[in-house]
């Protein structure tokens, strides 16, 4: 399983042609206490960069974008009752949705973990 990152602070963990998406630890730290998450419906078809989810912290609402073009397989229902999982375990239990990749070549446009670390350090 390999993990990729976007400049908008989403992560995607890829296994075969399926992936899991969430927001990074840096992103949850910037947002502060998350109080609501809206995940996409299964079956939704998303193009890379489309609005995929909404995350609301105490102070603001933010959009989460699809890191790749995909079909949504499943949203994380646990976030409905426990949106704080995004803060406590952003790159684990706080995942947003699972997907099937439409075009694996799009992954080449994303950062790997080392590149993302460097990117965050530059902010």
């Amino acid at each position: 399983m390999k993990r990729y990152f976007t400049e908008d602070h989403e992560w995607i963990a890829v296994e075969g042609d399926e992936g899991t998406v969430g927001i990074t630890d840096y992103a949850q730290e910037q947002l502060g206490d998350v109080v609501f998450v809206e995940v996409p419906d299964s079956g939704a078809m998303l193009k890379k960069g489309n609005d995929a989810a909404v995350v609301e912290s105490v102070k603001a609402a933010s959009d989460v974008y699809a890191p790749v073009s995909c079909e949504v397989l499943e949203g994380n229902d646990a976030l409905g009752d426990e949106p704080g999982l995004v803060n406590s375990d952003p790159e684990g239990e706080g995942w947003f949705f699972k997907l099937r990749l439409e075009d694996k070549d799009e992954l080449a446009e994303l950062m790997d973990e080392a590149a993302y670390k460097e990117y965050v350090a530059s902010l």
């Binding site: 602070h9 910037q30 609402a61 933010s62 959009d63």
Partner: peptide, 8 residues
């Protein structure tokens, strides 16, 4: 992800 509502 992008914050679209300013907190200031």
């Amino acid at each position: 992800m992008s914050e679209d509502m300013p907190d200031q």
